[in-house]
Computed example of a mutant assay.
Amino acid sequence: MFGRIALFLATNLAVLFLAGIVMSLFGVHPGQMGSLLVFAALFGFGGSLVSLLLSKWMARRATGAQVIVQPRNETERWLLATVRRQAQAAGIGMPEVAVYDAPEINAFATGANRNNALVAVSTGLLRQMQADEAEAVLGHEVAHVANGDMVTMALLQGVLNTFVIVLARVVGGLVDGYLSGNRDNGGGRGLAYYAIVMVLELAFGLFATMIAMWFSRHREFRADAGGARLAGRQKMIAALERLSLNQGRSTLPAQVEAFGISGGIGQGLRRLFLSHPPLSERIAALRAAG
């Protein structure tokens, strides 16, 4: 926990320091710099941190996931026992375990605290996967929690948001000044400036999304490796092979989809915006590691 707090503080300081250097190089006034950095940090980190803190509630509400409090059947007893065993092996607190109604094979994990997370599986997974395969999927999700992926993703998104806000306004000011011939307009900004900033935020936002999705794909490889350690490498490979039955289908809402185990369909430029690597690459990575 303290390591995550230290990472958050260090990340904020790094953002402020680097943004300060960039703005100094572009000749932004110190007073303007301070105000812009505060504005960027509030809006850049605010949304991602609020989403992180509310992630469990939002995920349950969006998917209709029902947390297992008292097991009603043998399947639910097995789910709780398996997650409890894997959580102990991974050194984390027991997550909440939930089931949500969806036809495809899928599962996700979320939560702001590795000792108070949520692991949910679809009814399609319970119907279509063998016990060994489902065990590996649960190990994959527990590994996400143990790796602190939800917190790290929120921090990264906050950093990227902050840079997008700062750079769009710094570059927008330079472009606006150039186009207006650096005429003094009383210190105010015209409509052209705000139009330029909006375009730049869209452009920089695309690059920021590529970076975030690259990290998302990287953490899927790590979670696969973690699932292999917790459940067994052959079980993890079999689970990923079974996921090919999804054929790219997912009913997970957008705010949860990046945390699902299924994904990775796309070619060309679209590949840069995928949150998951193709299943064939994930399977190959597990076989190579073995």
Rank of each mutant, 00 (worst) to 15 (best):
V170T: 15
G263A: 10
G139F: 06
A81I: 05
L243V: 03
G186E: 07
N73C: 14
A208W: 13
V142Q: 10
V166K: 02
A87R: 02
G47Q: 12
V166Y: 02
L160H: 08
I261L: 06
A254I: 04
E135G: 09
I283M: 10
I283S: 07
M198K: 03
R287H: 05
M1Q: 06
A120R: 04
R60S: 11
S275F: 05
R229T: 11
W214S: 15
A208H: 09
V151E: 03
A41D: 11
W78Y: 13
G64T: 06
Q234D: 15
M213Q: 15
L118D: 00
A59H: 05
F2K: 09
F39D: 11
L53Y: 06
N113V: 05
P253Q: 02
G232S: 08
N246T: 02
T209N: 13
T209I: 14
L53F: 14
G64F: 13
E133F: 04
Q255N: 10
L49G: 07
R229M: 13
S24A: 13
F221G: 06
P277I: 10
A87E: 00
L54W: 15
A19E: 05
V166L: 10
M198Q: 10
S250E: 01
Y178L: 12
M1N: 04
L202V: 14
D184Y: 15
T110N: 01
G268I: 03
R77C: 11
G93Y: 09
V119A: 05
M198H: 02
A109L: 07
A62Q: 09
E141N: 04
I21N: 07
L206M: 15
R222H: 03
L54E: 06
A195Y: 00
I261E: 00
G248D: 01
V145D: 03
G260T: 03
L36Q: 10
